[in-house]
Simulated assay, not measured.
Amino acid sequence: MAGAARTVAIYSLGGTIAMTTDPATGGVVPALSAHDLLATVPGLDALGIDLRVHDFCRVPGASLTLDNLAALSEAINAMLEGGEVDGVVVTQGTDTIEETAFFLDLCHAHEAPVIVTGAMRNPTMAGSDGPGNLYAAVVAAADRKLRGTGCLIVMGDEVHAARHVRKSHTTSPAAFTSPGGGPLGSIAEDRVHLVGRLPDRPAPMRPLAQGARIGLYTVSLGDDGALLGRWADACDGLVVAAFGVGHVPQQLVDTLEQLAARIPVVLASRIGNGPVLTRTYGFAGSESDLIKRGLIPAGSLSPYQARLLLHQLIAQGTGRDAIAATFTTFAN
Rank of each mutant, 00 (worst) to 15 (best):
D236V: 10
S300C: 14
G132N: 06
L277V: 15
T329E: 13
T328S: 15
N77I: 08
E111D: 07
A161Y: 08
D233R: 14
R279C: 09
E74D: 15
G181N: 07
A24V: 11
P123R: 08
L221Q: 11
T149L: 12
V195Y: 03
V253F: 13
T124N: 10
I97L: 15
T278I: 13
I314V: 15
A188I: 10
V53G: 01
L228F: 10
L134V: 01
F56I: 08
C151L: 06
R201D: 00
T21E: 13
T326Y: 07
P173G: 02
A18G: 07
P23V: 03
R213K: 12
M205T: 00
M1S: 12
L290N: 02
P275T: 09
R147M: 13
G61N: 02
V276D: 05
V266L: 00
S172C: 05
R52M: 09
L290E: 06
A142K: 04
S128P: 02
V265M: 04
G211E: 08
D321C: 07
S33N: 03
D143M: 06
G93K: 12
N273F: 10
Q258K: 12
I323E: 10
A31F: 03
L146N: 06
P199V: 11
S172A: 14
I323L: 02
G43A: 04
C151T: 15
A140M: 02
L310R: 05
G244V: 07
R320E: 01
A161H: 07
W231S: 07
M79A: 15
A142Y: 00
F103V: 03
S168G: 13
A34V: 00
G130Q: 07
T280C: 07
T100S: 15
T40R: 15
G274R: 05
N273E: 08
G26T: 00
R262K: 13
Q312I: 04
T326N: 07
G148C: 05
A71R: 15
N332E: 12
Q305M: 05
T25V: 02
D50P: 01
T218A: 12
I291L: 04
G150P: 02
T170P: 14
S269T: 08
H108L: 02
E99N: 10
L72P: 10
L267Q: 09
R201F: 02
A298S: 09
D55T: 00
A232G: 05
L216I: 05
H247T: 11
A18N: 12
S300A: 13
L37T: 01
S300R: 14
G274A: 04
E74C: 13
A71K: 13
A2L: 12
